[in-house]
Design a protein around this nucleic acid. Structure first.
Ligand code: MN
Ligand code: MN
Ligand code: MN
Ligand code: MN
Lengths: 221, 221
DNA sequence: AAAATTTGTTAGTTATAGCTAACTTATTAA
DNA sequence: TTAATAAGTTAGCTATAACTAACAAATTTT
């Protein structure tokens, strides 16, 4: 495959691509934390190798080949995260930084073995879907908690992002994936919610939190 | 730590250092599979960072700091190999190439966790000692099978090298680590041996093989 | 429509890590 | 002890991947 840096660009491009709006040099530069000139340079090289299409001043478009390559890197990342949590006993807040490095390891047998030992998991520890071996990423249909109504009962299925501090916060609240959450009320002023889940009753969740909790409705109170 | 390339140089230097003769630019170049000029260049940089001492035309000498850093990389390599074999079900012939990449992963918690899950193993799957967390490498006292005599009974404790083809050969002979080997006779002409071990009786081992099987005497026939 | 701002490109620089070719120093053989 | 060979260094080149500074194109505001 490509270099570590190119692989990280492909991954970033894949994520921007999912947001189905045109991918700009500026945006890619922000995600990659490099200057725009560096992006222009790299994008030219990636285009030469057929990972994407690029014309001066035009949006960047991933090719089929580029999308598949990116999905397979993300597969390695997410399989690793799941392996670290389910087979090695790491917390979900510890695994991203390790996976960020492991995703560049070139060893089909390593990731095939992880997949086998876990019986082909479909989601990573943060609820993100794991692309299949052919590079297909199944779409999920989860919605942010703040899009549901009073008296809805939902399951927490995924997190919109998985920053360390956010995961630590959820740990402190003992809020885990697949937990059932009942929405008692929504404060109209600041959109904060009063919810119950597990052993916790009538907990307040700010809108900042609830907007990052991706859920699925399963019933009413 | 240093770059991946620098880490590989340190590892190579550590191995050459074990052979307690002066380390030359030429030799290091051979091990690293780079030209001598590339070595001179890199050695200058490593010296600047204090990993080794270097003066023009003089042998290269690792510093204490360099030796410790190298040992800790080797620790990561060998812990990984052992983890892959004992916890993931890989064969001892499959793990070196993966460990060669994993040894560069910067994550103390990952390797601490492996260590913990395996109860601090002292040897890797090929019988090489695993340096301790403080960078100490315990010396082993194993000798090649061809240095023992007729009627000696020995244990196979380590391999001198672990090339894929050699390991496959041992697999085909069902010869495993910690196996008890009885030496029935030694052919004076080519130093080949007739030995028994496990379910196998009176197997012929060429000198090429026996010189790479590191053993420890445990008795007589 | 002109001005201001944002977006994107180009040119030139740096660091890393390799290479070849030419040269120098050290060692070994004649 | 000279000549040949081996070992090691230097200078200059390449590729990757970042950077800054200057500029050009596109878009937005006035
Ligand atoms: Mn992650
Ligand atoms: Mn990465
Ligand atoms: Mn190894
Ligand atoms: Mn390595």
């Amino acid at each position: 495959m490509a270099s570590q840096s190119k692989e990280n660009y492909l991954k970033a491009l894949f994520h921007l691509d999912q947001k189905d709006k045109a991918i700009s040099v500026t945006e890619l530069g922000k995600v990659m934390e490099v200057k725009k000139s560096s992006v222009t340079n790299m994008v030219k090289k990636l285009a030469e190798s057929g990972w994407l299409k690029y014309e001066k001043y035009q949006p960047i478009r991933l090719t089929k080949k580029g999308r598949k390559a990116a999905a397979l890197i993300i597969r390695k990342h997410r399989l690793t995260e799941m392996f670290l949590v389910t087979k090695m006993g790491f917390g979900w807040e510890e695994v991203h930084d390790i996976a960020e490095q492991m995703e560049h390891i070139d060893s089909p047998i390593l990731f095939d073995k992880m997949d086998e030992l876990m019986d082909s998991p479909r989601f990573d520890p943060h609820g993100s879907p794991i692309p299949s071996k052919d590079g297909t990423l199944h779409a999920t249909h989860f919605y942010p908690l703040d899009s549901f109504k009073q008296n809805d009962i939902v399951l927490l299925k995924a997190l919109r992002h998985s920053e360390h501090t956010f995961l630590e916060y959820l740990n402190s609240k003992e809020l885990k994936l697949h937990e059932q959450i009942a929405i008692h009320s929504i404060e109209p002023f600041d959109k904060s919610m009063i919810v119950s889940y597990g052993k916790h009753t009538h907990v307040v969740l700010s809108a900042t939190i609830s907007t990052n909790l991706m859920c699925e409705k399963v019933g009413d109170i």
